[in-house]
Design a protein around this nucleic acid. Structure first.
Lengths: 231, 231
DNA sequence: CGTGGCATTGATGTGGCTCAACGATAGTGG
DNA sequence: CCACTATCGTTGAGCCACATCAATGCCACG
């Protein structure tokens, strides 16, 4: 059974504001669940039956048009919260990019618990406000940036956000990291095609901004140079 | 002095969850402020000194690149909440599109009040979750839709969201409405140029989907036809 | 009756998409 | 361990949607 005592994200997830007793109550209504890479947890348009905390792994939030075009609208890391509490239909699909472990709650259970624990709601509000800032910032990239600017922005953002996901003790951005995405997914994040993503990467490599030791590995050689390309 | 008693959005803004006494306390720390069309209330990167409820008018949230490209990342209507509570820097500029009246609070005052009124925070959380859904949905439009699809989506969305702002008593989407935007602003919402916006509109008019009685007026002639174009 | 700020329209250019082929890598089974 | 195959990524050629550049038109204003 799930135990918050051993939870790796105990101090970073929204549960961090709860004391021992509260945590135990939450523990009772939660269920640990493993998800294989590629497996979906929540589907767009579904009644949002469950919410969850991510303990391990990386997941994507995505929507698509009727004819199969897809846009990734969010990336979820350990300690992040997923799902849509408080009575609304889920607006996007949640899919695991790597094998993942999440701590799930039925929406009803979670809503009830949250209403009785304002501290938890407050934490959730802060997270949601941050996510909203991030989403709006990404709208600038999608609406106004060139392919090169998109790529540079993406690489720098990844080098910052993957810090926690990595095993590094140090702070600060990483100069070497492994993307949890294939090329198609990068394309779906940036609003580009797979070919354009590939060409941009090879060009950035040729120009000595980055190195590409393997399919999913990125080495940042010239961080300032990349920053100058972000637009 | 501001009085919540006569506030037009009393029952729709986040204040709706407050009872008489609470409202009076909130009233004490709030200040009504008039903003002229075109005037900015909050600047990107500023310490977020104030938050506000919109009582009247329409405002935009926007960000831009260093070289002047702009992206509108949100549109704010009466009863909506603006600003970034809880200690973060504001990530976008807030500018009035029409003459507006807002009910402002210093961030510190509001934060304190909110922490003592979980019902208010809950309402704010719900609003923020809805805004996040909306922002993410817009990312699909920016990243993956063609100019025609963008325009059709935009017109239908406006016909729905301007219902409240209009004086109409009826529910349901409007078939005739006045945009609070010029062409440049529509372009900045959709991630297009002003010329493309203009051409798309004239084409939709020529194809009898809409009529354009004046610069900012839109008449929807074929709602289903437009819906078929949204992608 | 100008005058200045939008909006429309046209001509031309180009960044990124499409279509197509090829190459690399990881996984599989002999 | 290696050949085989499926999947993923790269590269190239050509094209098209949208951007850019440049007039011209339309009101609303003084």
């Amino acid at each position: 059974m799930a135990s918050c005592d051993t939870c790796l994200v105990r101090n970073r997830a929204i549960c961090a504001v709860l004391d021992g007793d509260e945590l135990q109550s939450l523990n009772k209504i939660g269920r640990t669940r493993n998800i294989a890479a590629g497996e979906a947890l929540i589907w767009e348009g579904d009644d949002s039956l469950l919410v969850a905390n991510v303990m391990e792994g990386v997941l994507k939030l995505s929507t698509g048009t009727g004819d199969g075009r897809e846009q990734i609208v969010g990336i979820v890391y350990p300690a992040d919260f997923i799902g849509r509490p408080f009575g609304a239909r889920s607006q996007h699909t949640v899919t695991a990019l790597t094998d993942a472990r999440v701590c799930t709650f039925t929406r009803g259970d979670f809503d009830g618990f949250a209403r009785q624990h304002p501290e938890l709601e407050h934490k959730l509000l802060q997270r949601t406000l941050t996510e909203l800032d991030r989403a709006r910032h990404w709208m600038l990239l999608l609406g106004r940036k060139s392919a090169t600017e998109k790529m540079a922005t993406f690489l720098l953002e990844m080098s910052e956000r993957l810090v926690d996901a990595s095993c590094r003790a140090t702070d600060g951005p990483l100069d070497h990291f492994t993307l949890p995405f294939g090329r198609q997914q990068v394309a779906d994040i940036l609003g580009l095609t797979i070919e354009t993503v590939s060409r941009q990467l090879t060009r950035l490599k040729a120009d000595r901004f980055i190195d590409l030791p393997s399919r999913r590995d990125i080495v940042i050689l010239d961080r300032q140079g990349l920053a100058d390309l972000t637009g």
